[in-house]
Amino acid sequence: MGKATVWALFIILFFLHQDFWWWEDSDLVFGFMPIGLAYHAAFSVACACLGALAIRYAWPHDLEKFAEEK
């Protein structure tokens, strides 16, 4: 996995954010959580995972070294 994959995942997540397929659905998940809200809560978790992948595979090591140099 490289930077390109991280970028691709970012773009996929952006499209997944537009969940028009549940726009008129007010069904409850686990008996209390509207499905539209549950989906977006899960989306937040996916964003955290993408952040972890970006740090693992696209970290700017060179820039870090450049800043620390005297």
Partner: peptide, 10 residues
């Protein structure tokens, strides 16, 4: 939530 919070997360 989707309007402001989840998109902000990304």
């Amino acid at each position: 939530y989707g309007l402001m919070a989840s998109i902000s997360g990304l």
